[in-house]
Design a binder for these strands. Structure first.
Lengths: 220, 220, 220, 220
DNA sequence: TATGAATGAGGCTTCATTCAT
DNA sequence: GATGAATGAAGCCTCATTCAT
């Protein structure tokens, strides 16, 4: 009987909980839009509530305070990005340069798709978030560190298998490569019509072969 | 003798003017420190004034408003950086890959020195400034565009002289290269103790020769 | 029953709306008192709020800003005056001098009653309001113009029916007559104990018959 | 010898004093212009100083504070008006209605000339001054009382000589007559192009003979 | 004596947050 | 649970006045 009650209760609650979760979702989305478009400080809680169509007192039933919501907005964005990137990309393990090229091309394309699909995403993450406060700034900086570690792992794998340069300083090279990605996203922010495929191609060109002309001897 | 007096008057600012200029300078510096450390929105005019040791009303004798001072802070930072970069770097015209390597190494070192000497500079420019408002965000983004054009010019020069790859997409390659610089600065923000020389070296490695291992065939 | 509920809802304001309207009313009244007593510029929003017994932030939930409230104060005063004047005065159409005398006497008495009942009313309208800013000054001046037109209409009617002097310059005579009313109000401001009935009588004396002694020949 | 020194000193001082008096004069004029055009509260001391072309610190060597200067501005205006009015008008003593008509016509014309010549004068006295503070308001109201007494005196004189109505309530009639003048000035403020001669004529018409048509019996 | 740099009281306004309904 | 009315801390900015030069 307890199980039955439990079952009934849980199914009843789950309906209410689902609605609650949906509204949470809506608030996060609205907050994201406000923050990305107007900026964090220029956005009032009332703006977010109005966009959702709820009273602004209700907001506080779903989130602690303004700082809380922006935390969730960021977390949410990062989750979405992570999901997109890991959706059809093998988490690791490519064993030839050719496969690596393919995989990094795919990752680049995915990233390009994400930031092109909704420029408010990079705008929020790169322009707005870092200035919110020290903690948020550190969080964004931490992202870069994290991305560096991922890339570094790939590179180390490639070096150990011999399809990447033996002498590679993997961490710093990872920073360089990720920097190019960052540069691409930033470029997309000032030039929404930029041909991201061409840019990705140029990045891969530098990444694999550098810019030195064939007439010159390779650097020692 | 009249000429002498005239000379003094014209070449040297009057005492009052000098003092005024000095205080202006001090206010800009104090504002920079406040903004970089606490953030633009968390900084009150009173904070800046207190740091300088003046009444907050005095602030308004030197700057229109809060937006005005941050504009000057940014302008000032960019001027300093530009000055540092152009101080002993030939503005352009290098005709061999070797010279180009030397020059870009120097630029990289200069940049590294600037951001390492005072991490509040990149913190202000990259973390705080973009989120202040739309205009400031655009201004920072514009910087990247500007830097791209400079780099692109160098690259085009190198291509035309044959010491850089013939098929280079100079604009996008410039974005990639500048992205690596940006990545280096960002990395320095989260890791103040990072070995910038090693990072610069890794960047040059990628930049000139890429990461492909020698055993593999170059990309088609 | 649904109709009943509907009726209640539509005909009566909800409790919250009533309370809101009441508070609005209280704020306007308090502002009027502050402005009339201390003057517009000497009155802070906090003063008004304190008089109502609300936080000064609450004020801004009811009125845009200081300029907004004074606009409403004036509008409110004028409405009250207009209502009082038109309450039992036929809007127009009197066809004999006798009737005209009666009506203008009543208007004069009404006006006297209003300004005597609360001297802050003329104090606000005549002493404070004109100096608030250009717009408000113009608004008050506009009132005089409007009053002149009303009076002028009455006079023209009387002239056409022959119970007023044929050669009357109706607009300017209206200005003269209204000027006497204005003078009476102003006199009441410096002399609150002034016998307004006697003053009104003197005004009517001048108005209808002038001051010339009977021994002298009427002016040509 | 003392006399000689005295003489020298006084003549020397008088030069400096004259200059000082001139500057005082200029400051008063500038303040009048600022106050009348922008309003008392909207005018900063710096505005006045700038208009004169002196440092705003200098202002305080000539006047105690902002309240002090406006007091002088008003005093100065009233003096000018009084001077104009008493310039060629016999201070009193007219013994026939004819003379009285002539004199009051001249006074009216003088007044009209003054306020028409520089509309900032009535604007300052009637629109700005009363709202400055309680004292200034009282001062302006006091003016009307004073004017009433003057007019009343004239009327009493006329009554006693029989050329004005015997039963005249001289004080209140004076208020009525002065009210018409006030009305004329106010009308001139909203209508700068108003024909003041016609208005003056209408006022005299009411003043001497009233508006009653000849067909009706005079009021009892 | 003239100046204007410095000052801070004072006032407006916003908005995150609370809480009674 | 939802609401929005109320609140006051907080911050921007002005400007009358002082005073050292």
């Amino acid at each position: 009987m307890a199980a039955g009650v439990q079952g009934i209760q849980s199914s009843v609650l789950s309906r209410a909980e689902r609605k609650k979760a949906e509204l949470r979702r809506e608030i996060i989305d609205a907050a994201f839009e406000c923050f990305a478009e107007r900026g964090y400080h220029a956005t009032a809680i009332a703006d977010i509530a109005a966009r959702v169509g709820i009273g602004h007192g209700t907001f506080y039933r779903y989130f602690e305070n303004k700082r809380d919501i922006v935390e969730h907005v960021i977390t949410d964005l990062l989750e979405k990005i992570t999901d997109s990137l890991t959706a059809d990309n093998a988490p690791n393990a490519v064993d030839t340069l050719q496969d690596y090229r393919v995989q990094s091309a795919r990752i680049g394309e995915d990233l390009a798709r994400i930031v092109t699909a909704d420029p408010r995403v990079p705008r929020m993450l790169l322009l707005q978030a870092p200035g919110i406060d020290k903690d948020m700034g550190d969080r964004i900086l931490g992202l870069f560190e994290y991305a560096m570690q991922l890339t570094s792992g790939y590179l180390a794998h490639g070096v150990s298998l011999g399809y990447l340069k033996e002498e590679l300083d993997v961490d710093n090279t990872a920073r360089a490569i990720n920097g190019m990605m960052l540069g691409a996203i930033v470029a997309g922010l000032s030039r929404p019509d930029l041909d991201q495929r061409a840019l990705a191609s140029a990045i891969r060109g530098v990444m694999y072969d550098g810019i030195s002309g064939s007439l010159t001897t390779p650097s020692p």
